[in-house]
């Protein structure tokens, strides 16, 4: 994470050991200036699951099973955030 600054992390929410929510909180807790944009991927499709993800610091939300069109749409949305991020850094 620290060596290669990623623009986007596609984050599975239900992972063993460290789940996606926890991982996101840890990433957001670091002082790194280059924060990736994080897209949650979760089988839990309820509104409240979405809120949990967004509150943990995720930027977008995909329901599993993730289809290619939804993934492409999410990447287009996130790309706008990423490009805004890099403009800010330059400025």
């Amino acid at each position: 994470m620290t060596r290669v600054p990623y623009d986007v992390v596609l984050m599975d929410v239900q992972m063993p050991d460290v789940d996606g929510i926890e991982a996101t909180k840890r990433i957001r807790a670091t002082t790194s200036l280059r924060q990736p944009r994080i897209v949650a991927m979760t089988a839990n499709a309820l509104e409240e699951d979405r809120d949990v993800c967004l509150q943990a610091g995720m930027d977008d939300f995909l329901r599993k099973p993730v289809g290619i069109r939804e993934l492409a749409a999410a990447l287009e949305r996130v790309a706008r955030l990423v490009s805004a991020d890099s403009t800010q850094r330059v400025a």
């Binding site: 986007v8 596609l10 790309a79």
Partner: peptide, 22 residues
């Protein structure tokens, strides 16, 4: 829209599917 993407997904099949879609 060039971006560096990290996939954090433990399930092997989902991982393969996501990489293929990307």
């Amino acid at each position: 829209l060039p971006m560096r993407i990290l996939l954090a997904e433990d399930n092997h099949i989902n991982q393969k599917v996501a990489l293929k879609m990307l």
